[in-house]
Each structure stands twice: as C-alpha cells, then as structure tokens.
Design a protein around this nucleic acid. Structure first.
Lengths: 215, 215, 215, 215
DNA sequence: GATGAATGAGATTTCATTCAT
DNA sequence: GATGAATGAAATCTCATTCAT
C-alpha cells in the first residue's frame, strides 16, 4: 500500500543502512500497525509477515515500542520539518499571493505528502491520541520559525481583507480539517472506491477558499 | 468529562437496570478506554478504578469485549438513529429552508450530541478504524430512510441553486470534517483550553455555509 | 532444609497473609535460589517445584526480582535489627562481662539465627556480591545505635585490657569470619557431614577468645 | 584491578598463545564476571567491553561456558597445585618450625596468591557454590600428597604441644576463614578503602597464632 | 580470522478469564 | 452476588550460538 518506503526511510541515518530483512520487518510492521493498530499487532505476526524470526525484530529494533518509534520518527524528525520549511520558502517568495494561491499551495503540497505516507500517517494519528510522547514529538515538529511565517502570511491577508478576520488557530483548523476529511474518506474509510482526484481537489480548494473569504 | 452518562445508558433495556457497581465499572471503563485506548487498558485497571473486584466485571459484562459493546451499543442502536430521525423530522417540516438554516440545524444538533458524549465517541472512532464489527454497526446505524431524506434535502437545494452542485457524498464530507475539526480540537487535542463556544460555532456555520454556496 | 519458614515470614505484614500456594512458591524459590543461584533458576522451575502455574508467581510477587526481595526483606528489615537490638540489650545489661562472656553471647546468638535461616542467608550472601541494592539494604540494617553500643563495649574491654588494642573493624572481622567459616563449612560446603555441634562451638569460642586476648 | 593477568595465563599451554583480541576478551570477561557474576553477564557485553565481535568469542572459546573454564582452569590445574607443592617443600624443609613460622608461611604465601588473582578467585568462589563441576575441580586440585604433608605437619605440632589438639579439619578452617575474612573485607566489600597491609597481616597472624595455641 | 546479522529456544511477563469461597 | 486467587495462553523480550560474507 505504501507507495515508496524508501523515500521516507532512506534518508534518516538511523534507517538508511537497514538490511533487506530489517526492511521487510519495517514494511510488515507498517502494514500491520496501519491495518490492525499498534496494540493489536503482535511481534510474532510481524515476524511471520516479514518471514523473519521474532528475535531479529528485537536484535535491531530493541523493542516493539522501538520499532514503532523507528517508523514514526522520520515523520516528525525530518519529513515534517522539511515540508514546513519548503512551504515557508515557497509562499514567502510569492509576494501578495491571492487567497486562492495560498490555499492551493498548502493543499497540493500537503496532500501529496499525506497521500504518499498514508499508512504511516494513520499509525501516527492513532498514537497521537493515546501516547503523550508521540504528541510531544508532534508539537516539537512544528518549529517556531514556521509558525511565525505562517501567522505572518495570514495576518497580511487579513490586512488586505482577502481572508476572514478570525483567530489564526481557527483558520488553520478549517484548513486542516477539510484536508483531513479528504484523506480520511479516500484513504482510510473507503480505500477501495475510485475517485476523480483532480476534480475533488478543485472542490476542496474551492470550498476552503470560499469558506475563508470575508463576506 | 462525560456530561451525563445516564442520558446515554438509562434508556437502553440492556443498561437501564445497572446496579451502582456496574455503573461504576461502566464509567471507569469509558474514562480509561478514552484516555488510553481499549487495547491498552486492562480489566485489572478498570476494576481498580471502579473499586470493584475483577470478577465483578465478568459477572455482568461477560468479557472485556462485552464491556466495550455495552459502551458502544447505545451509540449505534438507539442514540444515532434517534438523532437522525429527529433531524429528518425537523428539517423536513421546514419547507424551503435556507442553506444557513439547514447547516445550522445540522451543526447545532450534532455538536450537542458529540459534546455530550465525547468520551464514548472517541472510543467509538478508534474502534471504527480497526474493528470491522463496529464499522458494520456504524453503517447499519444510518438507516436508508434517513439517507434518502438527507439526499432529497440536498437535491432540492441544488435545484434551488442555493448549494454547490457537487456529489452529495462530498457535501456531507465537507460538513462532517468541519464539524469533526471543531470537536477534535476542543475536546481531544486541547481539552484544557477555554474557548468562546457561541462565537466559534457561528464561525463554523459561516465557514461551511460560504464554502457550500455556489459562486 | 529451611527449619522454620514461618518464623521468618509470619511476622512481616507483607508476608503474613500468604495463601498456601504463595507459601509453596516462597519455599520452592528459597530452595532453588539457594541450590542453584537466583540467576540460574527460572520462574518455570519455581512454578513446577511449587506445583503452581507460572502466572501465580507474578500475580502475587509482581516479578522474579520481587520474589527475591520478598525472600530477602525480612532479613534486613526486621530480623537483623531485632537481633541486633536484642544483643545490645543483653550485653549491656551485663556490666563488665569477661571477653569470654562477650564472645559466647555473640556467637551463640548469631549462630542460631544463621543456622535457622541458612538458605536465605546463602541467597543473601550471593546477591550481596553482585547487587548494589541488596548491599545498601544490608548497610541500612545495622542501625547507628547498635554500632555505637558495640563499639562502646569493645572500647570498654580495651580499657580494661581484656581485649587486643586493634581497630574495632578488625576485631569485628575476626569475629565474623570465624563465625562465617563455621557456617560455610557445615551448612554450605559439607551439609551432609555430621558434626558435634557443642564441641565445635566450644572450640570456635575458644579460638576467637584466645585470638582476641592481649598477649 | 587484576594485577598481572599474564602471570596466570602465560604458563598454561592452553592460554599462552592467545592473540591480542583473545586476551582482551579474557580480560573483559574476568572483569565482568567478577563485577556482575557469570550468569548476569551476556556474551554481547563481553564483546562490547573487549571491542571485538560476538562471533570472535565463540571462534576461540567455543562457548560462554568454555570461556569461564578457560578463566578458571589455571587456578585448579596449575596454579593451586604449584602453590601447594611449593608450600610443602618450604615447610617441610624447615624442621621443627614454630607455630608462628608455620602460620606466617601459610598466610603470606596464600595472601599473595589471593591478592594477585582476586577477580578470578571471586569468580571461582561464586561458581563453586553452584557448579558441581567446578567443585569437583577444586577437590581434585588438592592432591592427596599435599594433604598428607599438611596433616603430618599439624600432627607433629600437636605432638610437640605447640598447637591445639583439635581435628585437623577444624584447624584448617580457622586458618582459612581468618584469611578469607581479610581478603573479603579488603578486596570485595571495601575495595576503595585504604589499609595498612603490613600491620593488618601482623594482626592476622597474631590472631590465628594465639587462637590455635594450646591454653 | 573476523564480523555481525540472524536464529530459535527459552525466559520473563501480561492479562482476560474462571472458579472456589 | 461479590471476591480475588489462580490459571494458562499468548505476548514481549533475552541471549548463546551459528553462519554467510
């Protein structure tokens, strides 16, 4: 299901030297954690799915928990910061973007990332609900710099009256929840269903854009 | 956190005759399942939190799974259908409602329900992700009749051009995800934070309304 | 082998309410730890020897380590302090005892304790070598009050010139090592061999007494 | 801590041709076995401490048990016999030694050996308690010839009335336990503490000498 | 010879569930 | 009905040992 594991794990110093078997463990764990949940997946199942001995999992990943960390770390440690940084750079380069440009940049940028790593994101979302460590990692992953940039951007648009004058936290939530809805529907609830990606993304952007425009 | 457990469990024939101890078990289980997740909560913890013996849990609820079912059943078996029916009745009575009325009715109606039962809803959402039985229950909870009514409503508004001409599934998703964003932010992610409920709900309705209006 | 387990564990609030099965676990663990060493004994062996399920061990004693602690705690927490206190009382009541009386009191007092609890003592000695926690417990078990009394006693005898004028630590070591030699030989190295207890203890006291007398 | 490993392992045909890596393994194993106990030390720890691969340990020493044997064998196979033989030769050459000479010879002779090899001795003592093979090796290490000589020596002194008329086994035990007390206190219990070696040994010899003298 | 990934047997531990009191 | 000791199946984890490179 995972489109391209390498993209996510080939960069981190911790995971780039994985042997073939270790990679198989990682893949199997991601699939099973995403399908059944971390707590409902036994290391024995992972070992069987990866065609590896149970001991091998612990040899390299130390513990079941350590395996989960290895899976989630790239998300908060490098990928998310990278994307945020890239986003800052892009939007800031474009002086005076329209609300449409702004939203389109965010949506298309983020969607790609979410779609590419939907399994890991699903695992992540679930753990965020119950694991305060993961929650802390998530918060750390949003660097102050980015939040600053983002707030500036929105504030500017407020001044230019091209966006509603609501608190930034709300604006972000409307953006995020609409985006999440798209992902959850197509990748988690109805992964079998076909859909017209281009058209739906256009609607999504249109919905947010109108919703956030001042009356 | 749970506002009024009785409201949810006093009606069902299965749970209305619970003894005080059984009620304590139910409460403890809801708190723990919501905080730590079903799979990460042991029956021993529930027993301790409820100040009853471990055996007592099994006496009445048969199994840990049975306890979960007892917690979730009212959601899909009575409460959800009730609300849906109530919703049908209300909106249909109002001929030619505006998009604003429509959305406001839905949002205020649903929000109250979600807010009142946030813990149970959180447990439910998590199990829906991983448990196909719960998923099936959820689907059964939306009776064809309601879906028909709802679709009729939207179709009428489309004809009157007061709503975008997008597939109903998308319209519903935009509604649901915006609503979910509000609940997740205030009840799951930042339950400690204070907020101006009235104002935020007004923004929420405004956002959806503008987003779903045709250009 | 253990003469009277009850004497050691019937008093502690932690162990006095043990069920029959828990008592069997405690006995089996003491026997096996003493015979094979803590690290070389598996909880499965203990369960089998006690005719109990492995789970039962953990239900009550929490962990293998916890079982060891339960076995050793009475030694340092109540028994050793009790004996030391009793010793202080006895020797101090006897004004101006001879060196012979002093040594005899110590030896006979301690020997009985060691003989009664030889298995537990053996386990204790072994853990003392490798476990800093156990070592700390041992040091705590010698209350300052007792050490004071003991030192006073020896100092008085030094003044009366009935004991060698060596540092107290050395005096104590000669006492302790001679005593330990007796116990180790008869209870650990050659437990099968018969011996004339009375005569040997007389020799032991005589040896120490002469050894500690000034020339 | 170990003063001079080479002295112990350079002679044995089995260990004199060790490569540098193998020597590092031997050293690391001795340190760890002495500090944490054989059973509590993993081959992985030894490999890490010796900065070699885990495989290397097995290449040369066959098994963890084999490593222990290699460490302990010189003690019982060559060193102990050597010392005993040397002791026989020395004491027997001196006709009619005094009790003082006798004890001094033993103590100074043995102490040096124990002090030089305290780590190995500690490992040895522990295994003796739990491993019947090691125990058998120890017994074999005391050749009948030596025991004969030693007994003769004591018997002669008994005839000359310069030593107590107690069974030889007891005499030996008083000697051994006093000696062991010195070693255990200074090398195992309080290895950090400084002490006046010369003076303490004089007291030790004095204590034993007086203790074993007839009244 | 050296390495360290991989193994599998077994150790510790957890936990839902049963059942005698 | 209520209790909590006891169970046993399964989960996590450890570790000596093997073996391909």
């Amino acid at each position: 299901m995972q489109r391209d594991l390498t993209s996510l794990y080939a960069k981190s110093p911790e995971t780039k030297n994985l042997t073939e078997k270790q990679m198989k463990v990682l893949n199997a764990a991601i699939d099973l954690f995403a399908k059944k949940g971390y707590a409902n997946t036994s290391t024995k199942e992972i070992a069987t799915a990866a065609a590896v001995s149970e001991g091998s999992i612990f040899k390299h990943f130390t513990s079941k928990r350590g395996l989960l960390s290895t899976i989630l770390r790239p998300l908060t440690d490098s990928l998310l910061p990278d994307i945020l940084h890239e986003f800052s750079r892009k939007t800031l380069l474009t002086a005076y973007p329209s609300l449409h440009d702004f939203i389109q940049t965010i949506i298309l940028d983020r969607i790609r990332f979410l779609e590419d790593n939907i399994l890991v994101v699903k695992i992540f979302l679930n753990e965020v609900l119950y694991d305060s460590n993961v929650r802390a990692d998530l918060i750390k992953a949003f660097p102050a710099e980015f939040i600053q940039d983002f707030n500036n951007e929105i504030s500017q648009m407020k001044e230019r009256k091209i966006i509603v004058n609501w608190p930034n936290q709300q604006v972000i939530r409307f953006l995020a929840s609409s985006l999440a809805g798209y992902v959850v529907e197509h990748y988690i609830f109805f992964p079998e269903q076909q859909w017209n990606r281009k058209l739906e993304l256009a609607h999504l952007i249109d919905f947010i854009e109108k919703g956030l425009s001042p009356r």
